[in-house]
Design a protein around this nucleic acid. Sequence first.
DNA 1: CTGAAAGCGCTTACAG
DNA 2: CTGAAAGCGCTTACAG
Lengths: 346, 346
Amino acid sequence: MDVSTVTIKDVAALAGVSPATASRVLSGNPATSPQARERVAAAVKQLEFQPNAQARSLRSTRTDSIGLLVSDVRNPFFADLAHTVEQSALAAGYVTLLGNANERTDQQDRYLNSLISRRVDGIIVAPQGGDSASIRALIKRRIPTIFVDRVIADIDLPSVTTNSDTGIRQAVAHLAERGHTRIGYIAGPQSISTGRERYSAFTRAIAATGLSADPALIYVGDFQAASGSAAVHALLSLTDAPTAIIAADSLMAVGAVAMLQRLDLRIGEDIALVAFDDIEWFSLLTPALSVITHSVEDMGRIAVQLLLQVIDGQHPQSVVLPSELIIRASSAGAAHATLPPSSRKN
Amino acid sequence: MDVSTVTIKDVAALAGVSPATASRVLSGNPATSPQARERVAAAVKQLEFQPNAQARSLRSTRTDSIGLLVSDVRNPFFADLAHTVEQSALAAGYVTLLGNANERTDQQDRYLNSLISRRVDGIIVAPQGGDSASIRALIKRRIPTIFVDRVIADIDLPSVTTNSDTGIRQAVAHLAERGHTRIGYIAGPQSISTGRERYSAFTRAIAATGLSADPALIYVGDFQAASGSAAVHALLSLTDAPTAIIAADSLMAVGAVAMLQRLDLRIGEDIALVAFDDIEWFSLLTPALSVITHSVEDMGRIAVQLLLQVIDGQHPQSVVLPSELIIRASSAGAAHATLPPSSRKN
DNA sequence: CTGAAAGCGCTTACAG
DNA sequence: CTGAAAGCGCTTACAG
């Protein structure tokens, strides 16, 4: 007998009960006799029965699965987030279907539609860009959904985000204290909430400390490594170049490090660098990178919590997590004037 | 009308056709009239109809989804693999459900069972450890399955793996040429095929070059960072410590780097280091890390290709990809005697 | 505690 | 090219 075609009927027949009873035993319904439980269990084992999740959820409308849509799996922050979400969900009995938007709205829409078609019980999404038809569709269908890390401005859904203000303020204050007056900022895309928020946190911090608010010190990147490299090159080509740089995410920081190395600049001496997002690797660089840290574990765990509450019919409050500066060698030194790339070997 | 309850019957009613015709239009069956196509399309749009994938696959036995089980999403190699698999699958019209075994057999089994229940069309798996009931179940059920990166010894399934021999031989030869005679090796777990294979490639290379085959030079780790740190500490505590170390994966290499830094050893001068797996970050370290590279893009792309062939009823040959040494500063210097940790500040 | 029956939302021979 | 009908593998009121 082809084991792949074993159905609950086969189990029921072997156990000598009706499919209904077999189903009850399988789903842990207490209205079953010990004998029935025993015999069904034996039959399941003997036939290696695996219930068909499709059929089950077609009838019961539950799938015991959630969707997680991240912006970019290759970004260590989102890889870590995927990991914690998945572990938390597993502990609650849910399987996580992971989708990767690849920082593109079209792929986000494709995955979201696919998750809708699969009738996941809920979705955790780190949304791309601005408005999106597929996210509106989630709301229209009343599919339990929460935002993580990022939000979409006029869509009112529970979320877990980071208050970037504290960490960025601490970073700017710290750099000011080390004598930096012109701090460059590599911003994230302004179509993404974290990009906007960290940007405004930076400008507020600059204003509060009375440092140069020269708009030329701000370079808007796209949260990917290449834009971090481009940013460093542009910022250091200024006549009055910054002596310190803050990057709004880890990938752009990676690009910044690569370009600084290519320009033969010594990080922490010739120029200070601080990255948003604390990635394990940053502490291994020479010098170790100062970072603005926020807890990806908390974010993932709380995201699952909130989603389960929404699935349960509740209306949980959004949660905002703190951020904090960790000072390492890349920003520990005093400010020095930075030479433009053109005057150095490249 | 609650948009989430729109079914194909509603679409058919609005379009003035039968559900059968609506279904044919939806699935692109050519046996449909232009009028039917047009009116169904209009109804779908107006009602924002999303077909229920569960119901569809219950009847048609296809789900247009594949499963990918990786060993550890937080390992950049597997994150990259997930990315390329997903992109290739998407191009072929499949959605990828990603599961994370977290280097644990029990989680692997849980996900595999869940993927079976969801009736994915095929599964790509980087298997944990040795034999596994859930992997045997895949075969019994004749679920198209292929191995990627790792294999299980006596299970005969198509696979895409790396021939680690070339790269490791090049690495050993390169280190020998630089004057190293005692090369330490941080092995992966011997329960995993890549762990075993790279280990034997190393011992073969050592034998071929006539270097020290002292068993004390080999430390067996678990492919995680912490074991790389422990390995470095153990190897450098030897009376006759190695002057060069090869780590069998990127995570153990990260641990090795962290420990070498903690011991205040200068990589590339006091001790040479080579890592298996080429991770973007490795070139940013100071000094940049020499690596044994193999193409994760090819691996992911080919894995999807093979799986589609298996789904199509074919019996594709396994593919073995090449590996190659990339020499950077971490191994460029000449060999020096290495002092044990006890004689240094820690 | 149990079984017969209906139905979840689709698809697919079958007949026309 | 189209529709009525059966059925995919489950679950769940309903009646006993």
